[in-house]
Amino acid sequence: MPDHMKQRDLLLFYAELYKPPGDAVYEVISHPDFRSELEQASGAALNDGGELPCLTSLKEEFRSLFSRSSQNGISLIESFYKPWTTDQTAALPFAQSKGMMMGDPAWHMRYLLEETGLNSSYDPMFYPDHVSVILELAAFLLEEQETDKFTLLVSQHLNWLDDLVEAIRKQNKDSFYLKLTELLNKFVNTFTNHDQSFDRIKEGSVC
């Protein structure tokens, strides 16, 4: 399998990971080669090993970390981590505060999904800037070998993973999700840390 397809699968795995866990994702995790494939595809090492949780405790861990029904539920939605809007004409009192839904990133993501024609298959249960949606769009761009667009997408819509990692660490430093999110963050950073190439993309493609 070519590298970009491996990376695509990696992103699809993560997309599934941030949905309430079911058999499909558990099957992947419990495969004996899981760790090596994960590390190979992401080009980085997983922080320490440790035991894999069973499906039930994985579900409970997911609920306690990410469910808004648990008191300190961590958001998996990009808008939550960014100023609601940079639109100077938005005249709501909290226009520039963080922690709100349907901020600029959501509108941009919605636009991208609509324009690429992906919106028809997009599950209405999810927010357009839910991490899983972003990851699946990223995976799609890899599959289509749209490297420049992929780089823009992950560098702009996944640049909040530091905050997500911190939020998980604060709640449960031994969490399985912490280790995996750290790894994803490392993977994403390999695309966002190259400012030069990013600028080159932008310059070269003004249309």
Binding site: A90, A91, L92, P93, F94, A95, S97
Partner: peptide, 9 residues
């Protein structure tokens, strides 16, 4: 006024 002038709460 807060709504019109984009003021925080």
């Amino acid at each position: 006024c807060q709504m019109e002038n984009d003021l925080p709460s």
